[in-house]
Amino acid sequence: MAEMTYAEAIRDGMRQEMKRDRNVYLYGEDVGIFGGCFGVTAGLFQEFGPERVIDTPITETAIAGSAVGAAAAGLRPIAEIMFVDFMGVCMDEILNQAAKMRYMFGGKAKLPMVIRTPCGAGFSAAAQHSQTLEAWFTHIPGLKVVMPGTAADGKGLMEAAIRDDNPVIFIEHKVLLGAKGEVPEGEYLVPIGKADIKREGTDVTIVAWSLMLSKALAAAESLAQEGISAEVLDPRSLVPLDKEAILNSVKKTGKLVIVHEAVRTSGFGGEIAAIVADEGFDLLDAPIKRVTAPDTPIPFSPVLESAYIPSEEKIIKAVKELF
């Protein structure tokens, strides 16, 4: 094990796979000598050279669309879209091309491609550079959606995403990039579709992913001091979703709180709530609660932004409402 930041761990995942398979290459805006807008790709250009770490023009549509063509022709592209907010610029390539090709072609194509993109508020970057949009992609059959919340998961899920024969939307959180954790060295795979219990507990299940995982863990720590034992479950990937793990946890605790940074309406928390209401109604002894951002664009001023982002306090409040 080595201590690494979340950014370093994701980079190490890419590095391992690029060393292993020459069909893997990385491209996007400023991913080369600049090292990526958030530094995640730093050093890869020097290590693998300009043929495999490629700066593109500002051209999200051609980045995403050419990833589809290159993957259909047998390569394994890792494409970076600088902010998840920019995915709207290349949405046809994801919605109608990457996600649907295999099905439309009767199963006769595979598209091993990863689109890496950072989400999240916390830098006063305002409404066009701070969103958390995983729900868009979970609503499109044919895509896998991965959102690591720790450094080790960042590495292991990245390696698994690159080896996956399907389009994977790999959403990194900007606030987590500098967060440190213990990360296995060398080749390391975390299976996509397997949740992880990050803290065991008996009284309430908190499902949280990406940055919200660390807030849920902090809330659980505070709740423990007040005698409430919270289990914190990180699904790690939303598609496929490890619903068995969620149902098993609710079976143990009887209570469920779902936390996500995305806005509330049509957020993925609603989907998890629906699954548990449908398949685990008898397991529940209290209503399902969601802690989310409000249904607004993301404000600029730090005071407004911090009121917008779901906090540890809001999670604690939601949990206590169940007791």
Binding site: G65, S66, G69, A73
Partner: peptide
């Protein structure tokens, strides 16, 4: 044949990717 396509213009960036793969290899 990387597919007929129901979206007008969608084949253009896909063709660029396939051409990239040819050159890369």
């Amino acid at each position: 044949i990387l597919g007929a396509n129901g979206i007008v213009g969608a084949g253009q960036p896909i063709s660029v990717g396939a051409a990239f793969a040819c050159k890369y290899r």
